[in-house]
Amino acid sequence: MNSTAQLPVVRTDNLTLYFPLPKRRGQREAQFVHAVDGVTMSVRAGERLGLVGESGCGKTTLGRLLVRACAPTSGSVLFQGQDVSKLRGQTLRQFRKQVQLIYQDPYDALDPRRTVQACVAEPLEIHKEGTKQERDERVRHILSQVGLVPAETFMQRYPRELSGGQRQRVAIARALVLNPTFVVADEPTSMLDSSVRAGVLRLLADLRTQYSLTLLYITHDLAVARLVCDRIAVMYLGRIVEVGAANQILQQPLHPYTRMLLEAVPKLGRQLPVSRLRQADAIRQAINPQPHCRFLSRCPIADQECHHAQHPPLTAYGGDRAVACYKVAATIDVQSQA
């Protein structure tokens, strides 16, 4: 890999977003959901970084922060070295053109009063790209690339006249039509069947080769992440707990949460037992959390040390991997000494 491929396109520094909860009667302390809590990470030029983690852990919020769809409580996002919160005027316009978000919810992403054609052409119009005819051509082209063919049969339809997966592909087309340099794709193929999804993922791969598109791919589907991503970051309650090369993470997960996640992957052809929900499975929100490791209450390997210390820092373990866990540090040290 050449050296430019290693430069970060996006870097975050101690990025944090707390959502305030309204005060209830008799409550002394203000409460906050720590949706993103001190995330320091980078996305390298041309790479596809997967972001995985359980529901409510903060993936969407982190993605939105990266594209400046919301403002952080503290910390910063640097895009190509510039603090995105400080962008104004022309540089902000450039940023908006180069950076796109594919929304998790295709039912929210599209303006119901606009036709498919208008939805997809809008970014081109805002950025005054090409003539009307050229824009039409680009819209048609990107629609066929996401498998909405013949494109003519979709252009004049409204979002409500589309199936869920078709809407999702219109949202993808809209995000890609400007040939952006950085895309945050939030579960972009969750409603697509395996074959159509393969087509969309191939398109993303082609764009990477052609325009060196950098991708943050938010997903809960580890089988897809394995095939699509160069690196994977695992998030747990607002924090990154493990990050590394995709095959490393999937073959040799180090963090106890990553291991737990991998064990649950269903496999075709083998009927896995579905078990009932246990109390411990309830959704977690980090509301004014304890300073300890966020995973403590569920961790199978936690011990005294974990109960006393702060949340473990994300620490590098050779090569590309970093893990936030005290116990893993211990096991690795033992291994390397042996």
Binding site: V52, G53, E54, S55, Q104, G164, E187, S190, M191, H220, D221, L222, M260, L261, A264, V265, P266, L272, P273, V274, S275, R276, L277, R278, D281
Partner: peptide, 22 residues
């Protein structure tokens, strides 16, 4: 249930479906 678990991770998907199945 039309695509009921597209936004759920594998662990939660198995549990919620387990609940529905029970």
């Amino acid at each position: 249930a039309d695509e009921p678990t597209t936004a759920l991770d594998v662990i939660m998907q198995a549990r919620i479906l387990g609940e529905l199945e029970s």
